[in-house]
Design a protein around this nucleic acid. Structure first.
Lengths: 111, 111
DNA sequence: TTATCTACCTTGCATTACAAAGTATCTATT
DNA sequence: AATAGATACTTTGTAATGCAAGGTAGATAA
């Protein structure tokens, strides 16, 4: 082990926010979400995404709804709730504070 | 529970990098480190810091050396190794990539 | 029929931040 | 000298989470 995937550790805590942000913006289902994340440079496995969706749902941040598809299995679309919007706002705030502190400490100021 | 400290999750993975970065720059001991992190807006408990130091040491990223103090208990000073510098470089790179992706997705573009 | 893509879910593991409690040294106060 | 408090390090147990791996199942193309 290389010291074990820095990336997967970095992800913790932000991933929920990212998924919430996408759901807030688009009407998506899980599988589609994973593609969108991939496009945005944040590829995460399904074994990661689905548990997050369940968690967000359990916390009342999103709601899911099964819908038929004309070309494949049913899809579960997700929508953000008021509570979810507030949580997202909180996460964005936390992210700003933390990321600026980290930026200062890591000092990646190579212009 | 509020959904459980977003912060503590966000920290995961970056903390090692932050601690490495400080050790690279300054000659510090554990207790002092916790103060420096606090100043930089990244307060973490001792129960967090010391295990990280042990981990970094076990991975050969830093080395520790006990030294006497003229005003209190002995202190364990840490120094970064070549391997540690490389790891830090890697972490900085990961951070740049990830944080920019996250920035895009979270979209905190309130100018 | 078989294979492939889509789409969802679950189990088990490793990692890690943290609270809490413990040990020990030195300094200041009573 | 005895007590309290700050300094300084360590360990234990808990909760959370990313992920690989495996599983189920519908639709479509070969």
């Amino acid at each position: 082990m290389t010291y074990l995937s820095i990336r997967s550790q970095l992800l913790k805590g932000v991933l929920d926010g990212c998924i919430l942000a996408i759901i807030e913006k688009y009407e998506v289902y899980g599988y589609e979400l994973s593609k969108k994340l991939e496009q945005a440079g944040l590829a995460v496995s399904e074994g990661t995404i689905y548990p997050v969706l369940l968690r967000l749902q359990k916390n009342g941040f999103i709601v899911g709804e099964m819908r038929a598809s004309d070309s494949g299995p049913d899809r579960k679309y997700y929508f953000i709730t008021e509570k979810g919007k507030e949580a997202l706002k909180e996460i964005r705030k936390e992210w700003k504070v933390l990321s600026s502190s980290i930026e200062t400490i890591l000092g990646s100021d190579e212009t």
